[in-house]
Computed example of a mutant assay.
Amino acid sequence: MPHILIVEDEAAIADTLIFALQGEGFTTTWLSLGQAALAHQRQTPADLIILDIGLPDITGFETCKQLRRFSEVPVIFLSARDGEIDRVVGLEIGADDYVVKPFSPREVAARVRAILKRVAPVATPAVFQVDHERVQIGYRGQALSLTRHEFRLLNCLLEQPERVFSREQLLDAVGVAADAGYERNIDSHIKSVRSKLRTVAPDAEPIQTHRGLGYSYSPGNS
């Protein structure tokens, strides 16, 4: 079963979450400090982290920022602050959800399950292997050296074979605000990804260009 790391300095709240999550079949680990959570995730990666913002050592925001330097593990923020700016900041620095205290433990468990379902490995063709935790994609048995943006771009295409994505849609998948000045950056990222794919299979063209429309992933050309 998926393992959930709870980072919360209030024992009563942590106990409530542990009870609810274990009741849903998840395994859990509880830590009360952000630095301890970072060390734990490096050594024993969890499948999802529930992260309180008001921690005693470093804030949940700072913990998430440091976490995103080495992991794409899903994060749900917990906070007593329900202002729009706090929610926006939390999501912009890499969180997948934001829950305001007091909360329903059953609702949190449901959100955990929904997020894990969304990020579960997709049934991509055997020629590609996607590892979300390590932010890696294998192609024909060889690991590709991708940047974070290239990983997100290629993963987006792989998730929906044959679908034509516009540059704006791919920018959104990469996590960059749509802007005329940035749309051409997608072309540069596509060119770089294609170059890396060709080092493995020079004659294959898994990424197809649709003039005036965008790009798609074609399994038949992999």
Rank of each mutant, 00 (worst) to 15 (best):
Val122His: 12
Lys196Gln: 14
Asp9Ile: 09
Asp9Glu: 07
Cys156Glu: 12
Gly90Met: 09
Ser71Met: 00
Pro206Ser: 04
Ser145Tyr: 00
Ile6Arg: 06
Gly138Asn: 04
Glu183Lys: 15
Val88Ala: 12
Ser218Cys: 12
Gly60Lys: 01
Thr29Ile: 00
Glu205Ile: 06
Val200Gly: 06
His210Gly: 02
Thr29Gly: 01
Leu153Tyr: 02
Ile207Thr: 04
Ala114Pro: 08
Thr27Gln: 07
Ala178Gln: 14
Ile93His: 08
Leu31Gly: 05
Thr29Asn: 04
Arg194Cys: 09
Gln66Cys: 03
His132Asp: 13
Ile115Val: 12
Phe61Gln: 01
Leu33Val: 00
Glu183Arg: 15
Leu48Tyr: 04
Asp9Thr: 07
His210Asp: 06
Gly23His: 08
Thr199Asp: 12
Gly220Gln: 12
Ser188Leu: 14
Leu38Arg: 05
Asp52Gln: 09
Arg163Glu: 09
Glu62Lys: 13
Lys191Trp: 07
Glu62Met: 07
Lys117Cys: 02
Thr28Asn: 11
Ala20Cys: 10
Asp82Pro: 03
Asp82Ala: 09
Ala80Leu: 02
Pro74Asp: 04
Ala178Phe: 10
Asp86Ala: 07
Ala20Glu: 05
Gly34Gln: 12
Ile115Thr: 05
Ser195Pro: 00
Leu55Phe: 04
Arg184Val: 13
Ile58Pro: 02
His3Phe: 07
Thr59Leu: 03
Gly212Gln: 01
Leu171Asp: 10
Ala109Gln: 00
Thr63Trp: 03
Ala114Glu: 13
Ile186Lys: 10
Leu91Tyr: 00
Gly175Tyr: 05
Val174Cys: 06
Gly181Trp: 00
Glu168Ser: 15
Asn185Cys: 09
Val73Asp: 00
Tyr217Glu: 05
Pro125Trp: 02
Phe103Gly: 02
Leu116Gln: 08
Lys117His: 07
Thr63Cys: 14
Ser192Trp: 01
His210Trp: 11
Thr29Arg: 10
Leu5Pro: 04
Val108Gln: 02
Asp172Phe: 12
Ala80Ile: 10
Glu62Val: 13
Val130Leu: 03
Lys117Ile: 09
Leu91Ala: 04
Tyr217Asp: 09
Leu17His: 06
Cys156Asn: 01
Val200Asn: 08
Ile49His: 04
Phe19Ser: 13
Ser79Glu: 03
Asn185Thr: 13
Ile85Trp: 11
Lys196Asp: 03
Asp82Val: 04
Gly25Asn: 05
Gly141Ala: 07
Asn185Gln: 15
Arg140Gly: 11
Leu33Gln: 14
Asp179Tyr: 14
Thr16Tyr: 00
Ala46Ser: 15
Ile207Pro: 06
Glu62Trp: 02
Ser195Val: 02
Arg194Gly: 06
Val174Met: 11
Asp15Met: 11
Gly23Asn: 10
Asp15Thr: 11
Leu51Ala: 10
Pro202Val: 13
Asp97Trp: 07
Tyr217Cys: 01
Leu33Asn: 08
Thr124Trp: 13
Gln129Thr: 14
Ala80Ser: 15
Ser79Tyr: 00
Ala177Arg: 15
His3Thr: 13
Gly212Glu: 05
Tyr217Trp: 11
Thr59Pro: 03
Thr209Gly: 10
